[in-house]
Design a protein around this nucleic acid. Structure first.
Lengths: 298, 298
DNA sequence: TTAAAATGTCGGATAATGTCGGATTTTATA
DNA sequence: TATAAAATCCGACATTATCCGACATTTTAA
């Protein structure tokens, strides 16, 4: 590795140089005692690493880095300084320095850091070489692990806290099925038809299909009912809860949710009969899942 | 990347975790508040990086590293501490830590260092893989993915504060087992069947299997119950707490959590009968762990 | 060592689910 | 707008999966 040292303190420069040589880490191809004096030699000698002090008169470390980058220097920086101020250190890291070492200089510390950073550089270089040669063979193996409609739906159901319910599976299948059918209607078909379609995927005589679609219907209804009371409970604890705010008015009859909330807040009053609108729920879910899906394809 | 955090200061742990998650740098698969408590979980979970404080009561950072190395731990250490003493820092570097970060914690600094260190590890791993595949020409990489599903689960269980519980092992095994089975249904099979499957991996006659599956059931139930009261405690103090807000409604019966919270707030003794929904918990965990896993493959 | 806590074991309580008839609401049509 | 038909919604019951208390046993802490 080829190093360049920038520090206004000659003693520091000497120590760093000695550490590099002793540790057999590479060569020091130049030094400078100020930012200004460092610019030209660095650009022309193009070292792998620049060890630079943060605090220097006239041009400080960060400014020097800026200037060098502007002039197209691509090497790495390691900053060495006694600054304790976290603001400045953070700023330095934002300039994409490799690492910040605190003064006073400690042999082991410096050696260890230099070893790791140079190792990293070497690894990167060899991998880049390998990749280049592989790229000739391989045309972009675009791994498409894109999120599917199903993922979108389960994420929404999860937000409502009903992913665990049995009916969720039915809901996911239904939305998936609707989305994959050719006709891109906004309006979903009659629920009965949907249930039967879904049922006929597992059962094969009409009696069984009828039974199963009845079962599906109940499962979905109960699941939605649980979603409602979940959201109501959520809202009762904290009505600024984002999930509550978003889902409660969109997917349900908000009036029903509100009465539920009241029941919950005033403690015991038992779960009264609440209206469950399956159609609205599925309709909204269908549209929203598709929108999200489209959006996720960028 | 898979991180483990050891720091006696809970605030520091929290900050670090947040930085890792925000920066999308990986998962935190466990935490510990002391060196002693860190040993076992680190050895068994085998993280890529251990973020460790230098100054801790009883067993300090360096001693902890020693012990872990003695037990065969091969991962990397990043030390984070407010120590200024160059002697100690040097000593730490001699233990072959990756880097030393000075407290107070600075987001940009930590992110930058973690990014660089994880990059270095990745590079190293890829080179190893390449070398191996050149030597053997064909290489199986199936085992890797297994580990990561487990990691996702551990990370979630850690968030809920139940990683150490006995039942956690059962839960992890179950999710891992479910994920590796061919059928990619969203719906998990009946709990009874799951328990029996898991039990039959250790016991071999039907009586024993029955007993073991009963035991598994109870372990899991008790573990989930602890998770619930943990989250309720979090929520009772601050219901905008991110862990609470996310996990409480999705993994549990939120209504139950709510009554738990009330009890805590009103300082009532009453740990009354609470409903524990194992099915919901496992179902959601299964889906989420897989989702996260997919995401981690980018 | 002993007390207390955690875990295993088991039977019975409880709540989830499938099934079905019928009440209620929506839609189509005159 | 009235009315019938269709669609949707709901309650109730039987059947199980799931859940839970209580006690026995083991492990842990003191």
């Amino acid at each position: 590795m080829r190093y360049f040292i920038v520090d206004d303190d000659a003693a520091s420069r000497r120590m760093l140089k000695q550490i590099i040589l002793e540790g057999d880490m590479g060569v020091v191809i130049g030094e400078a005692d100020s930012g200004v004096n460092a610019l030209e030699p660095i650009v022309s000698s193009d070292p792998d690493f620049v060890l630079i002090d943060l605090l220097m008169p006239s041009l400080d470390g960060i400014e020097t880095i800026d200037q060098l980058r502007n002039q197209g220097f691509k090497g790495n920086f390691i900053m060495i300084s006694q600054v304790e101020n976290k603001e400045m250190i953070g700023e330095a890291y934002e300039k994409d320095i490799e690492f910040f070492i605190h003064k006073p200089i400690n042999r082991i510390e410096v050696q260890s850091v230099l070893k790791k950073t140079s190792e990293r550089l070497l690894l990167k270089k060899s991998l880049l070489t390998i990749r280049k040669s592989i790229l000739h063979f391989e045309e972009e193996t675009k791994e498409e692990s894109h999120r599917t409609i199903k993922d979108m739906v389960s994420s929404i159901l999860n937000d409502m806290g009903i992913l665990g319910e049995v009916g969720s599976d039915d809901i996911v299948s239904i939305i998936d099925f609707l989305s994959s059918s050719k006709e891109k209607t906004i309006q979903i078909p009659p629920l009965k038809d949907i249930y039967e379609q879904l049922a006929s995927q597992t059962k094969f005589n009409s009696i069984e299909i009828m039974k199963e679609s009845k079962a599906i219907e109940q499962r979905i209804r109960r699941t939605i009912s649980i979603a409602m009371s979940n959201l109501a409970t959520l809202g009762a604890v904290d009505y600024t809860n984002p999930e509550f705010e978003y889902y409660a008015p969109r997917y349900f009859e908000f009036a029903e949710i509100r009465t539920l909330m009241k029941n919950i807040q005033e403690n015991e009053p038992a779960p009264r009969k609440t209206k469950i609108n399956v159609k609205k729920f599925l309709q909204v879910l269908y549209v929203e899942a598709n929108e999200k899906f489209k959006h996720s394809l960028k």
